[in-house]
Every structure is written in structure tokens, then in C-alpha cells.
Design a protein around this nucleic acid. Structure first.
Length: 332
DNA sequence: AAAGCTACCCGCCAAT
DNA sequence: TGATTGGCGGGTAGCT
């Protein structure tokens, strides 16, 4: 990865807005970059939203956007959210602004159908790119020079990045934070934005392309751990399995997942417990055993801390959703 | 519910 | 000589 580049000033992130912009795609980068704190607990990024006209129309609301494209030269990173209708005409001024930014060496990333706008600039020509899977063939058809790959969450070409659906936009943003500040900061940012922690690192197996999994990748160990959650997994044993000292293992975890071995394990277990509670019907005790928590009490403790509710309540909520559609409300 | 015990984590530093 | 590793220790989180 690109180490060393010291972020002396906060990175400047410009999020583009335009008529028909998808609100979710607009808000994800704002939340992630806006909340990220660098290791000294200062704001890691400055976020501004830019548009051609002060007022932007979305499907359901109208937005007042504070910054104009004319001052886009401020940006160090430009995020292009998706558009609800890819057939909507694309503004030439918008395209030109993005091209100018790219020419200055600004990093450009698109979320979901934002890839259409990005492709219109020609910046994706000859490069691999992705978009929402439903729009992938359309993108490939319109831009034959772009190598469209619908099977990955995001594609990192260095200074030009694309991502698939809205959730993948989140992954992409966290990926950028990780690139800029490391896994720990990215994990914290995910937590701060109340996003699924797993996405911050490690077990996103299905992110195919991203950082060239370095030689010392933990991926195999993580997979093994996840496949054997029910076992007792002391860090010493994991370390032996990974053929490194516990100290080094701890470092690798910190770098690559943003957390420690034991913490990562706990999160994997809670996540697994969630799945079991959603679908299965085992007792809480059984679930605890199946995911490797010694007792139901321990499961409850961690579950509460990470999910915010008790396993029972969590299951009840899911069962209610799935089974009865007409039931009266009455949850928290 | 409190207390004690164990395992873990990470800064620090010597060794590689 | 700079970078990486692994051991040590003590403060803490987790478990009994």
C-alpha cells in the first residue's frame, strides 16, 4: 500500500450532487468521511457537497447545496454518487469539472450508478470498473472501452475507483479511509457511523480486487477462525497456526482488521449468533455453544454490547417480521 | 453482585 | 543503519 504519505492537512472530500442523485449514495460518503477521526482524534477529512446549481432535485426531496462546481479545485478526492435514472441526460459542465479534477491528479470514486457519469468522462476507458449489477450490462454497452466487472464490490484503479450497489459504496469509502489512514481508523469510522463493523476489514471475502493482498495477509487465518468459531481459540494457538509470535499476530490484526485477535473473534461470534437467531430455532444456550461462547450469559453480554439488544429481543424482532405481517406493533 | 483469576493487548526495547 | 520481530510487563477486559 501507499505508506508514509503524511496527511498533514485533512483530506478534502468533495461529494457531487446533481438532479436525480440517490440520497443514500450521497449520504454514505458524507457520513463516513465526515465522522472519520485520525489517530490523534482530529477530523480526518473535510467534506463539502458540490453541485452545478444551488438547488438539486432528488426523487423525493429538494436539496440546497452550498458549493458550486467552479470551486471544485478545492478537492483532493471527488465522490460521484449514483443517479436514480441512468438515462437522465448528463450535464456537460459536470463532466468537464470531473475531467479537470482528474487532470490535476485528484482521486475520483463513483458509487453505484455514478459509474455512468464517471464513464462519460472517459476516465474509465481501458480500465476495469463496476457498478450496480442490474446496470452492468448497460454500462458495458454504452462504454465498450470500459471493462465492466459486475462480480466485485469495488474496483480500485489507484486514482479512479468504482463501486457496486449502495452497500458497496460504504465499503469503498472505508477502503479509501483505510488507504489514507490505516485499518484502525477505518474501523473506528465504521463504528462511529453505526455501520456493520465487519466491513471495516478482514472478512470481506467477496471483495475481490482490492488491495493486492500483501504477502503477510491474514485472510487464510481469518477464514479458518471463522470456520471454527465453536472451538476455543486462544490467541497463542492462533499465533502458532499462523506461524508467528502473538506479538506479531497482534500487529497484523491491528493493521489488517483494525482490531485485536480476541476482539475480532468476539465480533465474528456475535455476527454468527445473529445469523443463527434470524433463521434457526435453537435455544440461546445452544446458539452460544455453536458460536463458541462458553455460556449464554457471555453471549448476552457481548451481543448486547455490539448489537444493542438481547439475543431474545433480536430473535423476536425477526420472527415477528417474518411470520406475522398484520401484528400490532409494540417493540421498543 | 463482588471478588479474584486468567488471558489479552500494546508500549517499549533489545535482538535480528 | 533502518525496519521488523518477539519477549516483557503492567494495566485492563473477560470469565468464573
Amino acid at each position: 500500500m501507499i505508506a508514509g504519505s503524511r496527511p498533514s492537512t485533512p483530506k478534502r472530500v468533495a461529494v457531487l450532487a446533481f438532479d436525480g442523485v440517490v440520497l443514500g449514495d450521497l449520504s454514505v460518503p458524507i457520513e463516513i468521511f465526515g465522522r472519520a477521526l485520525d489517530p490523534s482524534r482530529r477530523k480526518a477529512y473535510e467534506v463539502r457537497v458540490f453541485s452545478e446549481e444551488p438547488s438539486v432535485e432528488t426523487e423525493h426531496v429538494r436539496l440546497l447545496v452550498p458549493w458550486r462546481l467552479s470551486s471544485l479545485s478545492w478537492a483532493g478526492t471527488v465522490i460521484i454518487p449514483g443517479v436514480s435514472d441512468p438515462n437522465r441526460p448528463i450535464s456537460p459542465r459536470l463532466v468537464a469539472s470531473i475531467q479537470r479534477a482528474a487532470a490535476r491528479g485528484v482521486r475520483i470514486a463513483s458509487i453505484c450508478s455514478g459509474a455512468f457519469l464517471l464513464a462519460a468522462t472517459g476516465l474509465l476507458d481501458g480500465r476495469r470498473a463496476t457498478t450496480h449489477w442490474m446496470a452492468a450490462s448497460e454500462l458495458a454497452q454504452r462504454h465498450p472501452a470500459v471493462e465492466v466487472d459486475a462480480d466485485v464490490l469495488y474496483v480500485d484503479n489507484g486514482e479512479v475507483l468504482t463501486s457496486a450497489g449502495a452497500a458497496a459504496g460504504l465499503d469503498l469509502c472505508l477502503h479509501l479511509v483505510r488507504r489514507d489512514f490505516g485499518a484502525r481508523v477505518a474501523a473506528d469510522a465504521a463504528r462511529a457511523a453505526v455501520m456493520p463493523l465487519e466491513r471495516a476489514g478482514g472478512q470481506a471475502q467477496f471483495i475481490v480486487h482490492p488491495p493486492p493482498a500483501s504477502a503477510e495477509s491474514l485472510q487464510p487465518i481469518l477464514s479458518w477462525m471463522e470456520a471454527h468459531l465453536e472451538r476455543d481459540q486462544p490467541t497463542a494457538v492462533i499465533a502458532k497456526r499462523a506461524a508467528m509470535s502473538t506479538r506479531t499476530l497482534s500487529r497484523r490484526f491491528r493493521e489488517q482488521t483494525g482490531s485485536s485477535p480476541a476482539q475480532w473473534l468476539i465480533r465474528a461470534r456475535v455476527r454468527r449468533a445473529q445469523q443463527l437467531l434470524e433463521s434457526g430455532s435453537s435455544s440461546i444456550e445452544e446458539v452460544a455453544a455453536q458460536v463458541g461462547f462458553g455460556t449464554a450469559a457471555i453471549l448476552r453480554e457481548h451481543f448486547n454490547k455490539l448489537v444493542g439488544t438481547s439475543p431474545q429481543a433480536y430473535r423476536r424482532a425477526f420472527k415477528t417480521d417474518a411470520a406475522a405481517a398484520g401484528g400490532a406493533g409494540g417493540d421498543t
